[in-house]
């Protein structure tokens, strides 16, 4: 995984203790191994999540430290049922987090609505309807081991992410999609301004 994998195959020509890598590798290594998460629980999954924090499963060995504020945290764990009332708050918390930020959706409820998928008039059917999710952990609730697997996947994802010249590494289709989205947003904003002027005038 990233920089640490290269420890097994060092740069032999220069010596056994020399590892060659990119700055990106180094930064990603740092990011992946010091994820601070927001101490934030929603429902019964939060109980399992607390077990992950405690001594037996010890989330801290992944470099994860609970933070009380979204402004200090790198990722947020959506642990439980996201009601419509809470969805707005969850979105707000996510928006308050500083980049780079990641989201881990824990349990069936946060993934897809879970047992409330059909008659849950008050439940958001999947937290990915309001915020982008990086890792989904299935289960109702997931075992702590499943959560740890999700944590490993998240670290894998972080250690492979692009940092420099992101745009240049995008495929043509992706770039086109971004341009299209920009155009659509501009149009939307123009319409909004027009409406505002109409209301004023």
């Amino acid at each position: 995984m990233g920089l640490l994998d290269k420890l097994d195959k060092p740069f032999e020509y220069a010596g056994p203790d020399i590892v060659l890598g990119t700055i990106e590798d180094l930064l990603n290594w740092g990011r992946a191994k010091s994820d601070w998460y927001m101490s934030f629980g929603l429902a019964c999954c939060a109980i399992e999540f607390m077990a992950v924090n405690a001594a037996h499963f010890d989330l801290m060995r992944f470099g994860a430290i609970p933070r009380p504020s979204p402004r200090q945290s790198d990722f947020i764990i959506i642990s439980g049922t996201v009601t419509l009332k809470m969805a707005e708050r969850v979105k707000r918390l996510y928006e308050q987090m500083a980049e780079p930020k990641y989201v881990m959706s824990m349990g069936s409820c946060a993934n897809s609505g879970g047992p409330y998928w059909e008659h849950g008039y008050h439940v958001l059917k999947g937290v990915d309807r309001v915020i982008p999710v990086d890792v989904y952990v299935p289960g109702c609730p997931p075992r702590p081991e499943a959560f740890l697997e999700g944590m490993v996947r998240l670290q894998e994802k972080i250690s492979k992410q692009e940092i420099f010249r992101k745009r240049q590494k995008f495929s043509k289709e992706d770039l086109q999609a971004i341009e299209d989205r920009k155009k659509a947003m501009d149009e939307h904003f123009a319409k909004y301004l027009e409406l505002q002027n109409k209301l004023k005038g």
Partner: peptide, 9 residues
Amino acid sequence: EYHGLKVPY
């Protein structure tokens, strides 16, 4: 929907 959030699955 509620506040722009779609309610049905």
